[in-house]
Design a protein around this nucleic acid. Structure first.
Length: 261
DNA sequence: ATGGTCGCGGAGCGA
């Protein structure tokens, strides 16, 4: 079963590319972030025509997450348990083929120390709580999405320039580390040791053209989920060409049968 | 280069 994550930076602006990519890559489950659309206006028909069921949790202009799946989705969870207002649509949980999947769009944080940065740390603490309560007994647990956090220097094109800056600072890395303390592992690093594998390149600095990127989109897996994982790849081709998102998709292949025992 | 470009919505915000 192929599971993908992709920050599309507006599902409506990206729809032609997403449809072509679904046909080419044939993922079974797709976690989308920054859909930037209310659920009533989500472009369902074109995606459903390719055989996908859709769960979405969106808002106007900003944020928004959705999951596309060719298999049945159960245990749908929208938002954080301790955020009843759901002002920021950033988390959507589903269960597919025995995998509990949490699709996340973590607050960017803008700049270390500002209000948005504090909100980022709070969200990560909320996430930690959610994972170790609601998902404490999930054998095959996968957290994926745009975490807006790098793990170490290998994830950064110029580590010295980014030292202690947003997406790379110690407090946000520690907060993400606490989310993972229950036994979650960075699946990409399980398969690849070397640096210079990025998932996001800034539009503003023409980062793609200069390969100035960061690795901030992740698959964090429980031991049983990781045991079943055959491979992980960053689909760099999707960052190129006409009207790309600023993020590339990341795709894992998991063996459903092997994980079930 | 403390710049630059996107998307949304129709100015300015968020990334």
């Amino acid at each position: 079963m192929k599971i993908a994550t992709w920050n599309v930076n507006s599902i409506r602006a990206r729809l032609p590319r997403v449809l072509a990519w679904l046909e080419a890559r044939q993922p079974d489950v797709v976690c989308l972030q920054e859909t930037k659309v209310v659920d009533e206006l989500f472009p369902r028909e074109e995606i459903e025509a390719l055989g996908y069921a859709i769960e979405c949790f969106g808002q106007k202009t900003y944020n928004g997450v959705a999951v596309l799946s060719r298999s049945e989705m159960t245990d749908v969870v929208r938002g954080f348990p301790n955020d009843p207002e759901d002002a920021q649509r950033r988390v959507l949980g589903v269960c597919v083929q025995g995998y509990q999947i949490l699709n996340l769009y973590v607050v960017n944080g803008r700049e270390v120390g500002c209000d948005a940065y504090e909100r980022k740390l709070i969200l990560l603490e909320d996430l930690r709580q959610m994972v170790c309560t609601r998902y404490a007994d999930a054998e095959r647990l996968i957290l994926t999405g745009d975490f807006n956090v790098t793990f170490d220097d290998r994830d950064i094109y110029d580590p010295e320039a980014w030292r202690d800056r947003i997406l790379c600072s110690v407090p946000e890395r520690d907060a993400l580390g606490r989310v993972m303390e229950c036994g979650l592992a960075d699946a990409f690093r399980h398969f690849h040791d070397e640096g210079e594998h990025y998932t996001w390149w800034d539009f503003r600095t023409r980062g793609w053209q200069r390969n100035r990127g960061l690795r901030i989109d992740h698959f964090l897996m429980s031991p049983a989920a990781l045991d079943s994982c055959r491979s992980i790849l960053i689909d760099r081709d999707e960052r190129d060409g006409e009207k790309p998102s600023d993020h590339a998709p990341v795709i894992v292949d998991v063996d459903v049968a092997s994980a079930a025992q």
